[in-house]
Every structure is written in structure tokens, then in C-alpha cells.
Amino acid sequence: MQDVKFYLENEAVTVEIGQKLAKVARPPLTLYLTGDLGAGKTTLSRGLIQALGHQGAVKSPTYTLVEPYELPGVEVYHFDLYRLSDPEELEFMGIRDYFSENSLCIVEWPDRGEGLLPPADLHLHLAYSGNGRELNVHAGSAAGQAVIEHLSQ
């Protein structure tokens, strides 16, 4: 499986890569977003979720752990596990029910839910690079590889 890297010079380019993902991401699909605080995980998620058809604001689900979006043809679940103190909390919220055949799950801070989350189809890692960000995308499945191939074109 190949990795692909992108340089994201600003917020607009970060939103744009989320929009490109939306054009090729088909459920079921699990995305892990990792990177330091402020690296652009929620910004990228916003571009993806709005390009899938959500009209309103996309806020980070830091306090609620998950923000659901019922969109045409797909159920999107945006998780932010930053404030998760114990992965067992995910069991209490029925975490497995979110990962269905019709869902696209975006998980920020997936390491906090280790052992209870399904493996990622795509792992997107954002890192500071000069005044912008570097995005490294790694496929963890055939579905993820297909997304990478479309993004690379």
C-alpha cells in the first residue's frame, strides 16, 4: 500500500483536500486523523463533511465525543477523542454501532480509543511544516488504497 503526501499551505487548501476526499470517499470507510493540536484535523473534516452536503457549521466534537451528520446516501460520524479519559467510555456509548455499512467515520485522536476502534481505511496525519502543514495519507485497506489512487490523480 502506498502513502501519499500533500503540502497544505493554508486553511483554504486544507478545506480543499477535504473536499477532494468527499468526491471519492464511499461508505463504509473509517478515517483516522492524527496530528498536534491546531494542525488542521477539524478544518480538513469540515471540508469533507460540507462537501458531502452538510449546510451548517462543522464544530469539533471535543466535548460530545461524536457529532452525527445524516447526509444523502451516507451517515457521517465525526469523533474527537481528545478528552476521552478511558477507552471503556466508548463501550458505554455503543461505539461499534456507529461503524456500519452506510457510515463514514472520521476519528480525531484515534490513539485514545485504541483497542475499541476498527482499523482505519485511511490514516491522515497532519504535521506543521514551515507556515503550512504536511499531510501524509496512508492506506490501511483496499478501500483506502482506492481513495489514495483517486487523490493522487
Rank of each mutant, 00 (worst) to 15 (best):
Val15Met: 15
Leu21Cys: 07
Val58Ala: 12
Gln19Ile: 07
Thr42Trp: 07
Ile49Thr: 05
Val74Ala: 13
Gln50His: 08
Leu44Val: 03
Gly40Glu: 11
Arg46Ala: 06
Pro28Thr: 02
Ala22Gln: 07
Asp36Phe: 04
Ile49Ala: 14
Thr64Cys: 09
Gly53Phe: 02
Pro27Cys: 11
Ile49Leu: 14
Val13Leu: 13
Leu33Phe: 12
Lys41Pro: 04
Pro72Cys: 01
Ala51Thr: 00
Pro72Thr: 02
Glu67Thr: 10
Leu29Gln: 03
Pro28Ser: 09
Ser45Ala: 06
Tyr69Phe: 10
Ala39Tyr: 06
Lys59Met: 07
Glu70Pro: 01
Lys59Asp: 11
Leu21Asn: 02
Asp36Glu: 07
Glu75Leu: 09
Lys59Ala: 10
Leu48Tyr: 01
Gly38Asn: 10
Lys20Trp: 12
Leu71Gly: 11
Gln55Ala: 15
Val66Phe: 10
Pro28Asn: 02
Gly35Thr: 06
Asp36Val: 03
Leu21Thr: 03
Gly73Tyr: 04
Gly18Val: 02
Leu29Thr: 04
Gly73Thr: 01
Thr34Asn: 13
Ala39Asp: 04
Gln50Arg: 12
Gly38Ser: 06
Val13Ile: 14
Leu48Ile: 00
Gln19Asp: 08
Gly18Cys: 11
Val24Lys: 13
Gly73Glu: 06
Asp36Ser: 02
Thr30Ile: 06
Ile17Gly: 10
Asp36Gln: 12
